[in-house]
Design a protein around this nucleic acid. Structure first.
Lengths: 229, 229
DNA sequence: TCAAAAGTGTTTGGATTACACCCATGG
DNA sequence: CCATGGGTGTAATCCAAACACTTTTGA
């Protein structure tokens, strides 16, 4: 390997924007930094890429280490490489985009005692580095994605009501949707399995529960089906 | 700056996938490599990111140096970071996506005597590194982009016929479109300015020439207009 | 019996598709 | 006068949007 490249190199990190949904709102996972720079400030889980791991592997490792999250699916979001974005020197970060069922990852202290917490995406504390910009890019992506992929798969619990699903779309798209049209359209996609179960412990008529049919989704996806809402 | 990071770092490059359109086909710009690895093989213009330039600046610099191209607009495509993708060692590349008017950049030898040439995107030589994968990612992006942004702006000469514009869409989408419906729709967007000019030197009825109206495009874009075809 | 949310169809207007012939020009 | 592509309209269908009341349940 005689032709190795010998100039100064930027450092490369990954950062993960993890979205979850709870009863009230769309949430994003933040970690309170335990080291300089930005000690005590909130930031996305992430860290330096090792020489022997791919970018996605690095993102998965950091997610596991810092937040105990092992998501099934990561999507690359964007790479941020402005010269002054990190006071430690030249650092390029590859941001990843992750959707999880928030209920699987209730707030807990990470293994290394740094605090992890979910914040409403519309009301985060001031973020370290250029993470505010990264968040805004991620929100845009989410908004675009929701239009042609059934993201409910990943954000909702396995069994959910149509109203929950509609709320998800409304929160992400930042507009209200018509209940009847929404149901018509979503059911017409034939991706949901109607269960013989209803909500429990509600003080009004209980809603029917549904489940995503992953098999049908994969089939339709291969066939180039359009999930636009 | 006491907290500088001191571990081994991957190298970071940028690569540019430049598309152009000529009479026959959609073309992509390739450079014949003048150094190992992959000496003599074809690859995208690109190179190492300097410590004092942003990713996009690096992409612009390399495009200028290697192909004499100064495009108005670059779009980040994707970052490729598989461990074995470069035999020189760990190299992460940030790929950029560029549309140009091919007529502005007729094939010429680059300043450093490496050869640059346009190839049909459906029929390229074998590419260096993982550039085949990068090309396929770029083609997907182009196909997606064409559906909600008027890419004709950047690929066509300033004055063009509706048939040329339709061909562009057909080539990118890989399907034929109905002439009457296409015209109806594209004219209804009210983005084209009809000129008092027609084609020259054709051996049949000369087609009317049109021009994009950038002002109107910017306005509509701001208003969140949908350019879907 | 009241409050709260679940559930359900129809109508209308706009958009998309399919489709075929005459026109202008140069050779 | 012929070959080549330029240019044009209408009808049928599908899809999206608007819209309000009845049902169920628990408190």
């Amino acid at each position: 390997m005689s032709y190795t490249y010998e100039y100064p190199r930027p450092a490369v990190t990954v950062d993960c924007v993890v979205f979850g949904l709870d009863e009230e709102d769309l949430k994003v996972l933040l970690i309170q930094r335990g080291a300089e720079p930005f000690l005590g400030k909130w930031a996305f889980p992430g860290g330096f890429v090792q020489m022997d791991e791919s970018l996605e592997d690095a993102a998965r490792r950091e997610l596991e280490e810092e937040a105990g999250i092992r998501p099934s699916h990561l999507e690359q979001l964007y790479t941020f490489g402005t010269v002054g974005r990190d006071p430690r020197g030249r650092v390029i970060t590859v941001a990843y985009f992750v959707l999880v069922k928030l209920s699987d990852y209730r707030p807990r202290a990470a293994s290394d005692a740094r605090e992890a917490a979910w914040f409403s995406v519309w009301d985060t504390p001031k973020l370290a580095f250029d993470h505010a910009e990264i968040l805004s890019t991620a929100l845009q992506r989410l908004k675009g994605k929701v239009r042609y992929q059934p993201i409910g798969f990943e954000l909702l619990p396995p069994k959910f009501t149509l109203t929950q699903l509609q709320r998800l779309y409304e929160v992400v798209l930042e507009r209200t949707l018509d209940k009847r049209n929404f149901r018509k359209k979503i059911l017409a996609m034939d991706l949901l399995e109607e269960l013989d179960e209803v909500e429990q412990d509600v003080s009004h008529r209980a809603a029917r529960l549904y489940r995503f049919d992953h098999r049908k989704y994969k089939q339709l996806e291969k066939a180039g089906f359009n999930f636009e809402l």
